[in-house]
């Protein structure tokens, strides 16, 4: 079996890298937590790393650079200025890229999502806007897998099934420029880019609190048209085992948490 290398990328304020690394370690591969400056060569020489040498790239959650300009904007700008070519090549090689929470915001800021007209758009085409409640929302969320075709991240999550990945963010409402909102959504659906949508316990698309942010069309996660770049607000890496689910003391016990399947799928796709 191929030795799979995973890059969990971080800068100051990235704060979900430990559990992101644990997620990949739980499915039998060896992840490495890498600082952006290690890819840019701005570090002691023994710590330098090459993005191309990895098979999977993960952008974990957090508040990169404090999110003081716009969530994810600074991390994205720093990646774009020093690493654009490497990233484009990585994506065009079909290698999986996953961004969770702040990582999703970074992928949108980078133009790697929704990327309807090419690998990476020049400017961001969408935004993850302040939640309708106006507050940070840390709560359980249920997601229905709605991708019609195959994707490298969902081979182990059947279409129509519901998973519990918790959310924790203040800016997770997916929006397009108002005038193009309807058209962009249609294209997104047509391209089969909608992967996860928020639902209630009956599996119905529901409002707050089940959709914690008021996102367009209840969208929780999208991929690029090729299906190898995935961004999502909820955190699969927080539910690797059943005991971190919110209601695990009430339901029938099983060992695995819902989050594992997404990482299993990604690893399987590159093996």
């Amino acid at each position: 079996m191929k030795h799979v290398k995973v890059c969990v990328l971080r800068i100051e304020g990235t704060n979900c890298e430990d559990e992101a690394a644990t997620a990949f370690a739980s499915v039998g591969v060896s992840p490495e937590k890498v600082h952006l400056k290690q890819l840019l060569g701005q570090c002691p020489s023994d710590l330098k790393r090459d993005l191309g040498s990895y098979d999977i790239l993960m952008l974990p959650g957090g508040f990169s650079a404090g999110d003081y300009v716009r969530a994810g904007a600074i991390f994205a700008a720093r990646m774009k200025s020093g690493l654009k070519k490497d990233i484009v090549r990585f994506v065009e090689d079909g290698k999986p890229v996953i961004g969770v929470c702040n990582g999703f915001q970074i992928l949108v800021e980078l133009g790697l999502l929704p990327a309807m007209d090419g690998t990476m758009s020049e400017a961001p085409e969408a935004a993850l806007y302040t939640n309708d409640s106006g507050r940070f929302e840390c709560r359980p969320t249920l997601l229905k897998q709605e991708k019609r075709g195959k994707s490298v991240f969902t081979s182990q999550i059947p279409k129509g099934s519901v998973v519990m990945y918790p959310s924790a963010h203040a800016e997770g409402k997916l929006m397009f420029p108002r005038a193009q909102q309807k058209k962009m959504l249609e294209r997104l659906l047509e391209n089969d880019q909608v992967v996860f949508r928020y639902v209630d316990p009956d599996g119905e698309h529901a409002g707050y609190p089940w959709c914690p942010n008021g996102s367009l069309h209840n969208i929780a996660g999208i991929c690029n048209p090729a299906g190898n770049v995935l961004g999502m607000m909820p955190h699969p890496e927080r539910v690797l085992k059943r005991e971190t689910h919110p209601d695990w003391t009430r339901v029938k016990w099983k060992e695995d948490g819902d989050g594992l399947s997404i990482f299993r799928s990604a690893v399987q796709s590159v093996r």
Binding site: N15, R139, H235, T249
Partner: peptide, 25 residues
């Protein structure tokens, strides 16, 4: 209060501030 605090980051919170049915704890 506690929904505004990220009480699950690091992925190790087993018994959370709310116990019970999701969103009704």
């Amino acid at each position: 209060v506690f929904r505004m605090y990220d009480h699950e980051v690091r992925g190790g919170t087993v018994v959370k501030p709310a116990s019970g049915m999701m969103n009704l704890g």
